[in-house]
Simulated assay, not measured.
Amino acid sequence: MTSFRRRLRRPVFLGPSAAVLVLAAAGCSTTGSPASITVPTPVPEVAAYCGALHKELPETVAGQNRDDSGPRSVLTASWGDGAIVLRCGVDRPAKMDDPMAKGTDADGVNWLLEQPEDAGPRFTTTYRKAYVEVTLSKAYAHDASPLAAFAPAVRKTVPNSV
């Protein structure tokens, strides 16, 4: 996996050409949230990390209040009526096997970037004993800064795997 190191602390916006590329990949709409939240089914060790993470998650992310609009589970959380969704204990994304995959670092936590068709960006932690996935609505297609809000909780509760 190719990783570009970029410290995300406060709102950081992609450069003009990168923003155009991401917006083109995301489509013209700037709204929309995940339709439904599927609760992962991790092994007990991973579920324990996720339970600890759940207790440390912030109440607000990118100005959005936590609302947990999906199923009640320590494996899921959401902010802004589902505009930002976190799932812990997801399976390892196949995209991690791609040496050309894009990644980023947000305050010491590495994330794989995936851009599903007709959806906002999806980020999954790398080099951690539990995979934590954050899906952002299309409104955040140009902005990965919400990841910085999760970094302290992930660093504290989900150990490195390397």
Rank of each mutant, 00 (worst) to 15 (best):
L14M: 07
L86R: 07
S78I: 10
Y49S: 14
W79H: 12
T135W: 05
R6W: 08
F4C: 11
L86H: 04
A148P: 07
V46H: 01
V90H: 01
L57H: 08
F123C: 09
K102T: 12
V85T: 12
G103S: 15
L112Q: 08
P42Q: 11
V109F: 12
F150E: 02
A139P: 02
D68W: 11
K129N: 07
H54D: 14
H142S: 15
M96F: 11
A139R: 04
K138T: 06
A77T: 02
R92Y: 02
V39I: 04
P16C: 07
D143T: 13
P16T: 14
T38P: 15
E59L: 10
L57Y: 08
S33Y: 01
N110M: 10
K55C: 03
E59C: 05
A148R: 02
S69K: 05
M100L: 11
S29M: 04
D107V: 12
M1T: 13
L75W: 00
F150V: 07
V20T: 14
Q115R: 02
Q64K: 14
G108V: 08
T38Y: 03
K95S: 14
P71Q: 13
G103K: 09
L112R: 13
H142F: 08
V61T: 11
V134N: 02
S137A: 04
S137Q: 02
A47P: 09
G120N: 08
Y49Q: 15
V46A: 07
A94K: 04
E56W: 00
E133N: 05
V20A: 15
A83H: 01
V162A: 11
L14W: 00
G63I: 10
S29A: 12
W111A: 08
L14C: 02
P11Y: 06
